[in-house]
Amino acid sequence: MFGQDHFFVAGRIAWDFRRQTNNESEWGSKLMNLPEFMNITMLSIESSSWSNEFAIPYPTYFHPLRNINVVHWQKRTRTRKRRYLFCFAGAPRPTMKGSIRGEIISQCLSAPNRTCKFLDCKAEGNKCDTPVEVIKVFRDCNFCLQPPGDSYTRRSTFDSIISGCIPVFFHPYSAYAQYIWYFPKNYTKYSVYIPQNDIKNGNVSINRVLSRFSEHRISEMRKEVVKLIPKVIYANPKSRFERFEDAIDIALKKVAERVNKVGEVLKEGKDPSVDFAAGNQWKLKLAGIVGDQALETLL
Rank of each mutant, 00 (worst) to 15 (best):
E224G: 02
V209H: 09
S239C: 07
Y234T: 03
I248P: 01
K231T: 03
P237D: 09
R222A: 05
E220T: 10
S239L: 00
P237G: 01
F244P: 11
R243D: 15
S219G: 13
P237H: 07
A247P: 10
E224Y: 02
E242L: 11
R243E: 15
F213W: 01
R240E: 15
K231E: 00
E215F: 11
S211L: 11
V209E: 15
S239E: 04
E215H: 12
V232K: 01
I233S: 03
R212S: 13
K227A: 08
S219H: 10
V226D: 03
S214R: 10
S239V: 02
E224V: 02
S211I: 07
L228H: 05
F213Y: 15
I248C: 02
R222E: 06
I233R: 00
S214H: 06
V209S: 12
F241E: 08
S239P: 05
S239Y: 04
R212W: 00
P230M: 07
F213R: 06
E215V: 10
S239H: 05
R217K: 13
A247W: 10
I233D: 02
K238M: 12
E220P: 02
M221D: 05
I233W: 00
I229N: 03
Y234S: 06
N236E: 00
R243I: 14
E245T: 08
I229V: 08
V226Q: 01
I229K: 07
V226F: 05
P237A: 06
S219P: 02
K231R: 06
K231C: 02
I218F: 12
V209T: 15
M221V: 03
E220A: 13
F241M: 15
H216F: 13
D246F: 10
S211V: 08
M221N: 04
R240V: 15
I229S: 04
F244W: 09
P237N: 09
E224N: 14
V209G: 13
F241G: 11
L228G: 01
K223N: 09
F244Q: 06
R217Q: 12
